[in-house]
């Protein structure tokens, strides 16, 4: 491993590839109860091309955060492989992994240690990986803080002295100081005010171009995802139910869940009212996923076969498939798509 990781490792066109990745948790269990199993992530396969933003959307509990944790090496997968730049990361050294993939978390109030100065927080990756002399490290920290738009004096402050937007800038500086290839953004703006959200989204876009980054952008805010993402994967109960380019998903969603998600995104247009999206009131229990298609109890167009057969995530050709150009393969898991 060299000290300067080249941002664009042109060996492999895919920055990230997930192959049938699963994570099963055992819940409860004791002398009297059988432990329940929770398939938080169920056979997820996904390919993220280098330099692109892959959006990952889904409701809370759909497994998107567990997925992020597995990618970051924070929890081992139950089965399946994660390939970063074409190399498997299961059993890889955490330090080696950290050079390639870094997180930006949701809550800037809990992602920074309140007892450390900003300079310490941002410089931590360099210290842990012993990159450069203390003087070089300090210079790098200053340069990074400048890049994310923080004043020099911020280095000596504590997180408690900063606003939410500033803290998120610190978190971004920490994630990028080692020049990773891939950044996992786990709802990076959902704890921020809208006026600050725009600042952070602009910053993320600028830094992506500057460092040639690949983002896996996890969010529940479809407007934000549409603004940022090149490709989009929709998760429901641990599985990807639809994947495609931004245009494919937003103009011609195939899966009824994707359609419901898009319908429930409220744009600031008065007079449209709140759409009736036609999903039942119940939310599924992930420990007892429905048989067949996991979405069928809430699906407005479910057929008898949906409760019996599990639909496979298979490639589809859009009616207007030509318009999206070559290589824009889309996949959907629905019998009726």
């Amino acid at each position: 491993m060299t000290n300067t990781t080249s941002p664009a490792n042109s060996m492999d066109p895919l920055a990230l590839e997930l192959c049938a990745l699963s994570k099963t948790f055992k819940l409860g269990g004791g002398m009297l109860h059988k432990p329940q199993t929770l398939k938080a992530v169920n056979e997820v396969s996904l390919r993220v091309p280098r330099g692109q933003v892959m959006g990952l959307v889904g409701e809370s509990g759909c497994g998107k955060s567990t997925l992020a944790k597995m990618l970051l090496g924070l929890t081992p997968p139950s089965s399946g492989d994660v390939l970063i730049n074409g190399k498997a990361i299961v059993n890889a050294n955490q330090k080696a992994l950290a050079r390639h993939i870094q997180p930006i978390f949701q809550d800037p109030y809990s992602s920074l240690n309140p007892r450390q100065r900003i300079a310490q927080i941002v410089g931590l990756p360099l210290r842990i990986h012993a990159l450069g002399t203390p003087r070089e490290q300090a210079a790098k920290v200053d340069q990074m803080l400048d890049l994310v738009g923080l004043p020099k004096r911020a280095a000596q402050q504590y997180p408690g002295q900063m606003s939410g937007g500033q803290r998120q800038r610190v978190a971004i500086a920490r994630a990028l100081i080692m020049r990773p290839d891939l950044v996992i953004c786990d709802e990076p703006t959902s704890a921020l005010d809208v006026s600050i959200q725009a600042q952070i989204l602009n910053l993320l876009l600028d830094l992506k171009d500057e460092f040639g980054l690949t983002y896996l952008f996890i969010s529940h805010d479809l407007a934000v995802v549409e603004h940022l993402a090149d490709r989009l994967a929709v998760m429901y109960l641990g599985q990807i139910v639809e994947e495609g380019t931004r245009e494919q998903i937003f103009t011609a969603p195939r899966h009824p869940y994707t359609q419901a998600l898009l319908a429930s995104a409220l744009t600031p247009e008065p007079g449209l009212g709140v759409p009736d999206i036609g999903l039942g009131a119940g939310q599924p229990d992930p420990t007892q996923p429905p048989s067949g298609c996991a979405f069928h109890p809430r699906c407005p167009i479910a057929q008898p076969q949906c409760s019996e057969q599990t639909p496979k995530l298979s490639a589809i050709t859009h009616a207007s498939g030509q318009a999206f150009g070559k290589g824009s393969q889309a996949r959907v898991a629905c019998h009726l798509a």
């Binding site: 876009l205 995104a265 744009t267």
Partner: peptide, 20 residues
């Protein structure tokens, strides 16, 4: 500063409100 489908160009810079 809210990205609005059909109004803001995807990937373009949003017009943020500066300051706090």
């Amino acid at each position: 500063c809210i990205p609005t489908p059909g109004k803001t160009l995807p990937g373009s810079r949003l017009q943020a409100i500066p300051g706090v």
